[in-house]
């Protein structure tokens, strides 16, 4: 299993802040997005926008590998300060 978190505009678009996703093998962030969109076809638009991804609270690119137990977060480009 992995824990998947959504923040800010993405959280509102999906109406979800956290879900668990079964994971039986090593995959990439890209695969995680594919499986989220397959399960929830209406999430496709939200995931077509520019998004950032963090694994275990470190920013990663979409070809980064994801393993069981990871905390994966998706969010829009940041706007603090």
């Amino acid at each position: 299993m992995i824990k998947v978190l959504f923040f800010a505009a993405l959280r509102e678009q999906l109406n979800s802040e956290e879900i668990s996703l079964p994971l039986d093998k090593m995959v990439t962030v890209e695969h995680v997005i594919e499986s989220l969109v397959t399960k929830n076809p209406d999430w496709k638009t939200a995931f077509s926008h520019t998004l950032l991804c963090a694994i275990n609270q470190e920013m990663v690119t979409k070809n980064h590998t994801v393993k069981s137990g990871d905390e994966v977060a998706f969010f829009p480009p940041v706007t603090g300060g």
Partner: peptide
């Protein structure tokens, strides 16, 4: 901080709330 730290601003402008774009 502006481009790396995970903060997001939602703005209230003229009665409408909207998330700011980077």
């Amino acid at each position: 901080l502006k481009v790396k730290a995970p903060f997001w601003k939602k703005e209230l402008s003229e009665g409408v709330e909207s998330w700011l774009d980077a």
